[in-house]
């Protein structure tokens, strides 16, 4: 009995000492948490607040989240007006270290070129985001910048392991490049240049126009960009304006939204108009995050004979999306399946 108590005590002390050395990181989104895990590995303890299948706009600042934040060394949120519940939670946590501008705070969006900046700041535009669209995680290339910001945060709070974090950041960015463009093209042109071209919307045009070694450059393209070619330029409808970064990279043409304006409930009149638009434009796919009203999505699809693509926005939003790579795989494969079915 004594022996067992001693063993348990040793295990407890060990685990306490072991976890004591780790950086305690809390993120708003599960996608950020996954990137932290990739870069920090065994040097961090990571928790996230918004579940992968939850709408990040509407999260209740529960006391248990405040407790989580009160112990955080590092807090990572988008930093825009997506998670408007964050200030209340940070106030409740009484942890000044993780306040905006402090050492323990990272704004994931920093350095990302924001799209969809409103021309007019008015509620007549619905739930507008005044700095630009905050759904930055839907473009894999943005994840490289987010990872860079996360690494900067980890380094600031744990400078001893800076090299370790930098090494993993490099690996992460390389993996994103390979997964986005395919290894062969990345070897030829380099991830940085490809990212520039892709973000400028020039990549596919350039690759189609140029040749190398007697072969069209587009034939060197691989990864998600290649996988997404079948639906490039295709018209779809989305539920909410949260796919704009994805749409821009992969060339989807979103002709309308189920929500008349962001955050505004769809009226029967608006739905009818949308259905007509879908028929007129022969739209066969409706893309929605899995926290929206599935019945509404299916009803609209049934009316026009379209295929619903209901997917999680964030990591772990459904089984099989345990990391960002699997999540993006899922988005693209589901869209491809939907378009193939509708041929």
């Amino acid at each position: 009995m004594k022996k067992q108590i001693i063993i348990i005590a040793i295990i407890l002390i060990n685990s306490l000492l072991f976890s004591a050395g780790k950086l305690n990181v809390v993120t708003t989104l599960s996608t950020y948490a996954d990137i932290v895990k990739y870069i920090g590995q065994d040097k961090v303890d990571v928790h996230y607040i918004v579940q992968g299948d939850q709408d990040p706009h509407f999260v209740r600042p529960k006391p248990s989240f405040a407790v989580l934040l009160s112990k955080a060394d590092l807090f990572i949120s988008t930093g825009l007006d997506l998670e408007l519940w964050v200030p209340s939670l940070v106030d409740m946590s009484k942890n000044d270290k993780i306040r905006s501008g402090q050492q323990g705070f990272v704004a994931a969006y920093d350095g990302i070129k924001l799209l969809d900046k409103p021309d007019v700041l008015s509620r007549s535009e619905g739930g507008l985001h005044i700095y630009g669209n905050p759904h930055i995680t839907t473009n894999p290339l943005n994840l490289k910048i987010i990872a860079e910001n996360i690494t900067a945060g980890l380094e600031k709070n744990d400078p001893e392991n800076s090299d370790f974090y930098r090494e993993n950041l490099k690996k992460f960015q390389q993996e994103i490049d390979n997964k986005t463009f395919g290894e062969e093209l990345v070897k030829l042109m380099g991830g940085a240049l490809l990212t520039k071209l892709a973000n400028n919307g020039q990549l596919i045009g350039f690759l189609e126009e140029k040749e190398y070694k007697g072969k069209k450059m587009i034939d060197y393209l691989g990864g998600w960009m290649k996988a997404a070619l079948p639906f490039r330029g295709k018209k779809i409808v989305a539920y909410h304006k949260n796919w704009i970064y994805f749409q821009t990279l992969f060339g989807l043409d979103i002709i309308g939204y189920v929500e008349p304006k962001p955050g505004i409930p769809p009226s029967p009149k608006h739905v009818e108009k949308l259905v007509q638009e879908m028929r007129k434009n022969e739209v066969k796919v409706l893309l929605a995050a899995n926290y929206f009203d599935e019945n509404k999505v299916r009803t609209i699809c049934n009316k026009v004979g379209a295929e619903p693509v209901i997917v999680p926005m964030f990591v772990e939003g459904t089984p099989g999306t345990e990391n960002v790579f699997k999540l993006i795989d899922l988005w693209i494969s589901k869209l491809n399946k939907a378009f193939a079915k509708m041929k």
Partner: peptide
Amino acid sequence: LEQDELGKLLKEAETVANK
């Protein structure tokens, strides 16, 4: 020749990207 071709290509790509 390949290097020249690739170099030229990358240069062109850089120009397009920075346009």
